[in-house]
Simulated assay, not measured.
Amino acid sequence: MKIHYVPTVLLLGSAALILLVGVGLLLKGRAVRRTAESFRSRAVAVTATVVALEAKDLSLGAEPDTRYFPRVSFVPAGATDAVEAQTLTDVPAPPPRVGEQIDVAYDPERPDRVDVAATKGDVEGAGRTWVVLGSLVLLVALGVAAAWLVLVLVVWTS
Score class of each variant (00 low, 15 high):
103 D>H: 15
63 E>V: 11
106 Y>T: 03
98 V>R: 13
107 D>Y: 07
23 V>G: 03
132 V>I: 15
28 K>N: 11
85 A>G: 12
141 A>C: 07
10 L>M: 06
117 A>H: 13
114 V>W: 03
33 R>Q: 13
100 E>P: 06
156 W>C: 00
85 A>P: 07
7 P>W: 06
104 V>T: 13
143 G>A: 02
82 A>E: 15
22 G>V: 02
66 T>P: 02
37 E>T: 12
36 A>S: 05
148 W>N: 04
34 R>H: 04
152 V>I: 05
39 F>V: 00
154 V>T: 08
53 L>I: 01
59 S>D: 12
1 M>C: 07
54 E>W: 10
10 L>R: 03
153 L>E: 15
83 V>P: 15
104 V>N: 07
28 K>D: 08
129 T>E: 13
45 A>I: 10
33 R>P: 00
65 D>V: 02
52 A>K: 07
151 L>Y: 07
27 L>G: 01
88 L>H: 09
44 V>I: 12
114 V>Y: 02
27 L>D: 04
128 R>K: 07
73 S>N: 06
4 H>E: 15
18 I>R: 04
5 Y>Q: 10
156 W>H: 05
32 V>R: 02
85 A>D: 05
95 P>H: 03
30 R>E: 03
150 V>Y: 15
153 L>H: 15
59 S>I: 08
73 S>Q: 14
142 L>T: 01
111 P>E: 01
129 T>F: 08
85 A>I: 01
108 P>H: 06
17 L>C: 14
66 T>L: 09
51 V>W: 03
53 L>F: 02
12 L>W: 11
111 P>M: 10
132 V>R: 00
112 D>Q: 13
37 E>S: 06
52 A>M: 08
51 V>K: 15
103 D>P: 10
25 L>Y: 03
128 R>W: 02
134 G>C: 05
142 L>C: 08
156 W>F: 09
78 G>W: 07
137 V>W: 02
98 V>C: 08
20 L>K: 09
28 K>T: 12
75 V>C: 05
54 E>D: 15
121 G>Y: 06
155 V>K: 15
142 L>F: 09
122 D>N: 14
108 P>W: 01
11 L>Y: 11
62 A>I: 00
35 T>R: 14
129 T>N: 12
75 V>Y: 01
82 A>M: 07
154 V>H: 10
9 V>C: 01
113 R>D: 10
69 F>E: 04
77 A>M: 11
51 V>D: 02
93 A>E: 09
96 P>W: 11
139 L>G: 04
137 V>T: 13
29 G>M: 07
6 V>T: 11
24 G>M: 12
69 F>D: 06
55 A>Q: 14
58 L>C: 04
61 G>T: 03
